[in-house]
């Protein structure tokens, strides 16, 4: 008798409680993490020290990403920048521009300033790794040049970036 009462009570409690769990917030995907060593240039490939060669060599690590409104270089960014610095040391004649970008979720002019901040942060880290400062310049594109066209956190996290571009 007690057991039946218990079962009935528990069942009614469960029926009454209609809790809905919040879905976990989406986390932005981690940036590319493939560690690829700098491959020796092949005859038919792009010229060494060129942007195309740099991009292939970096395989995604020519770009570092930022959180909303932030411009700090975190551990992942540092790893990518170390590879960039290594490449630039390997080709001492190459000059590079660091582009700073923002997501669309901000005002246009402030984003131009924020983009410059991000580019500057990346450049400073490269300089601290030994790249000569006069080989690096910065440019800000604000929110004008997105690479991901969605209007969601996934796209925005991909657009908040600093890209190093070797000048041919």
């Amino acid at each position: 008798m007690q057991k039946i009462a218990l079962v009935v009570t528990v069942a009614s409690v469960l029926a009454l409680s209609a809790c809905k769990k919040e879905p976990p917030a989406e986390l932005p995907p981690a940036p590319q993490n493939t560690a690829s060593p700098v491959s020796p240039p092949s005859q038919a490939g792009p010229a060494p020290g060129s942007q195309e060669h740099f991009r292939q060599a970096m395989a995604g690590r020519d770009t570092i990403f930022f959180d909303t409104d932030m411009f700090n270089v975190d551990a992942e960014d540092q790893a990518a920048l170390r590879e960039q610095a290594a490449y630039l040391q390997q080709y001492p004649n190459a000059r590079a521009t660091v582009e700073g970008h923002c997501d669309e979720r901000g005002t246009r002019e402030y984003n131009l300033a924020l983009g410059e901040r991000r580019a500057n942060a990346a450049k400073n880290y490269l300089v601290s790794l030994g790249v000569a400062a006069d080989r690096l310049s910065t440019v800000s594109y604000g929110k004008e040049r997105p690479i991901a066209v969605g209007s969601n956190e996934q796209a925005w996290s991909r657009n908040r970036r600093a890209v190093t571009v070797v000048m041919n």
Binding site: L6, V10, V13, S17
Partner: peptide, 12 residues
Amino acid sequence: LGLGIAAAAHVA
């Protein structure tokens, strides 16, 4: 046990 379930049912 009954007390606990009753309390939970009230809260719900």
